[in-house]
């Protein structure tokens, strides 16, 4: 075991499905203990990347290592250090929560008292105590998802791979889920790699990796990525939006521009007063709003550029 190695390290990792390149040339290093968000539109390659790292797919190209161990050659070693949560729930409705967790513990190689203790701990961590001995099919979707989290963390994995863990959850269960995962990070230094479509969830991440059409299009801290868009974003609506954006480009202030349904979203650097002044003098501008840059702006700027939709 190589604990000095990064939690995740990939070199030119790629996977094809027939003629389709689902993932290509992924170079990714995730240090141990980091919280890394994987963002991208549907079909960007996020799930493929996670399945490759989870040893459930063999790469078509390149190499992936988990804590220094090759995921293709050392699957059994890698799997002991992984906690996985996929988009679909893996809780059997016919079994109770406790039975589901015991099943997962046994799959992980724990037996007897050790398995029962791990299950009890996991139930306590996730607040599932009141539901522990009820058939899982009687639980709400949120609690079933938390049972999934309990299942993924019960063997205290070193790396958690979470594929859209909060999809369909209400805010209360979402918070409960992240609190459980955060506790794992705080107490055990667990590395977490997660994908999400909720940009706000990626804000606390140490790093955000953006994928589009199977290729990595951005990699950095949320602050660094936001900085690539500019100091602020001007939402410009009206027929004159394009002309105002050109004027901003002419001044060298515009860093990025994205078409929206009603106009343009322009990331700019420099004093916002200058933009307001320019907009005030521009014809046919129906609405101008200036706001801080969000990860969503980064997401649209980077993923739309690759689709050729950028202004």
């Amino acid at each position: 075991m190589n604990d000095a190695a990064p939690a995740v390290e990939t070199e030119a990792l790629g996977r094809d499905y027939g003629d389709t390149r689902a993932l290509d040339g992924l170079n990714l290093v995730v240090p141990a203990g980091a919280l890394v968000g994987l963002l991208g539109p549907n079909g960007a390659g996020k799930t493929t990347a996670m399945l490759l790292l989870a040893t459930l797919l063999a790469p078509s190209r390149g190499v992936a290592r988990i804590f220094g161990q090759d995921v293709s050659r050392r699957r059994h070693v890698v799997r002991r250090r992984l906690g996985l949560l996929f988009q679909e729930t893996s809780i059997d409705g016919l079994l109770t929560v406790r039975e589901n967790l015991l099943f997962a513990a046994r799959l992980g190689g724990l037996g007897g008292r050790l398995a029962r203790a791990a299950v009890s701990d996991a139930i306590e961590r996730t607040g599932l105590g009141q539901f522990a001995d009820r058939p899982a099919k009687t639980l709400s979707g949120g609690w079933r998802r938390l049972a999934d989290v309990a299942r993924a963390t019960l063997h205290l994995p070193d790396l958690l791979i979470l594929d859209e863990p909060t999809v369909g959850l209400d805010p209360e269960h979402r918070e409960r889920m992240w609190n459980t995962i955060e506790a794992q990070r705080r107490e055990r230094g667990t590395t977490v790699l997660f994908s999400t479509h909720y940009m706000a969830e990626a804000e606390p991440a140490d790093r955000v990796v953006l994928l589009a059409r199977g290729v990595m299009v951005a990699d950095g801290s949320p602050a660094d990525l936001r900085a690539t868009i500019g100091d602020a974003v001007a939402e410009i609506e009206g027929e004159g939006a394009e002309r105002l954006a050109s004027a901003l480009r002419g001044l060298g202030a515009a860093r990025s521009a994205i078409r929206t349904g009603r106009g343009l979203r322009v990331g700019f650097a420099g004093p916002r007063e200058a933009v307001v002044e320019l907009a005030g003098a521009a014809p046919r501008i129906e609405r101008l709003a200036i706001r801080p840059v969000s990860l969503e702006d980064v997401y649209f700027a980077r993923t739309q550029v690759r689709s050729g939709d950028a202004a």
Binding site: L56, R79, L84, F86, E88, S90, D92, L107, G109
Partner: peptide, 14 residues
């Protein structure tokens, strides 16, 4: 079909 097999295959059991 419902994802349980994936969980099993990802376990160290083999």
């Amino acid at each position: 079909e419902f994802g349980m097999l994936r969980l099993m295959l990802a376990s160290p059991a083999g």
